[in-house]
């Protein structure tokens, strides 16, 4: 009872990466809290996935294999998860900040009247004192995320309501297999026990899943453009440099919002988290929401015409000036010096 539970996302025969990352985080939280790690897997034709999930150190795996649970629709998954959580009363529930997690999480939290924090960049265990009410709480989940606007990070807690829920984006946590031979206790759930006729009101008529063309997560060099790039045309400079040195192009949210490039290139708290060998930030000021997605880069170069841009503090090299001048020079001197 009162364990840590991770909702595992299942799509096209596979469990999503973010679920494994959360299981790893969940394992370490469960160790600190001295409780068990549970996983919840809902879908169809799930046979064989028990082993894959167990490896991350899961103690109890709840599984419901039912054709009404795949492809994902909101109400059936909500019904099973809420029904289960009412019985098992987990103290913490984690899910991916994905199309599915962000559809399901708020629905579950509303049903159980529990708090939910979106897009956390870190999760820790700690104590909390409500000075006004004169109450002390031990071992709460610290849900840490950059907050609105600038260089601030907020720690959110849910003192009284359970479960404490959080969503986390893919790539933010690192996955780690505990043991290939670890075996979870598997509990098979009967979805029919939780589903009502009215949960099936939304029907899927058509579905097309695409694989993403952009592969930022696995690129060792990333050239990221910000609002300072100034236009869609200027973004071509970044593609040229990327093409020359073998890199992928990323962006800040301001650049995406301005329409300079596509949303799937966004790096940061609400985009992708990357850890490349080299990160070249072009015309990016470096607000915390952006930094959250790239701070683990091994080397950072900042190209900015403002000497005081916050991102310069993280940079190994700062090139001070206009990117329109600098990038063409980088391309030509790269070509000149490479054999």
């Amino acid at each position: 009872m009162n364990n840590v539970c991770v909702y595992c996302e299942f799509e096209e025969g596979k469990i999503q990466e973010v679920s494994f990352e959360l299981l790893t985080k969940g394992r370490s939280l469960a160790n600190q809290l001295n409780c068990k790690l549970e996983a919840l897997l809902l879908g169809e034709n799930l046979g064989g996935l028990e082993k894959e999930i167990s490896r991350y150190g899961v103690d109890i795996l709840y599984m419901a294999d039912d054709k009404r649970l795949y492809p994902y629709t909101t109400l059936p998954h909500t019904a099973v998860a809420v029904g289960l959580f009412r019985e098992t009363k987990p103290q913490i529930v984690l899910m991916g900040a994905t199309s599915i997690g962000r559809d399901l999480g708020p629905r579950i939290s509303s049903s159980l009247t529990s708090g939910l924090t979106a897009d956390c960049t870190n999760l820790e265990i700690g104590d909390y004192e409500d000075k006004k009410a004169g109450k002390k709480y031990e071992h709460l989940l610290y849900q840490i995320r950059p907050a609105f606007g600038g260089n601030i990070v907020a720690t959110i807690v849910n003192p009284d309501n359970r479960p404490q829920m959080a969503t986390v984006r893919e790539g933010v946590m690192k996955k780690e297999i505990v043991s290939d031979t670890h075996k979870a206790e598997v509990v098979y759930l009967d979805a029919g026990q939780f589903l009502r006729e009215e949960d099936l009101v939304v029907k899927i008529i058509e579905r097309h899943m695409e694989t993403s063309k952009v592969n930022l997560k696995n690129s060792s060099i990333i050239i990221a453009g910000g609002y300072g790039v100034g236009s869609k045309e200027n973004f071509n400079l970044l593609y040229e440099l990327a093409h020359a040195i073998g890199a992928e192009v990323g962006a800040s949210r301001a650049a995406v919002d301005a329409g300079y490039t596509d949303k799937e290139r966004q790096i940061g708290q609400t985009g992708i988290t990357v850890r490349p060998k080299l990160y070249i930030a072009c015309g990016i000021s470096g607000q915390i929401q952006h930094i959250a997605g790239m701070q683990d880069s091994a080397m950072v170069i900042s190209i900015n015409n403002d000497a005081n841009a916050p991102i310069n503090k993280l940079a190994d090299y700062v090139i001070q000036g206009n990117l329109e001048t600098i990038i063409p020079k980088m391309i030509s001197y790269y070509k000149k010096n490479i054999k």
């Binding site: 708090g115 610290y142 907050a147 601030i152 907020a154 720690t155 849910n158 009284d160």
Partner: peptide, 11 residues
């Protein structure tokens, strides 16, 4: 509101 802000930190 079940969620409370425990702390806001300057980074």
């Amino acid at each position: 509101s079940p969620t409370k802000v425990r702390q806001v930190e300057n980074i």
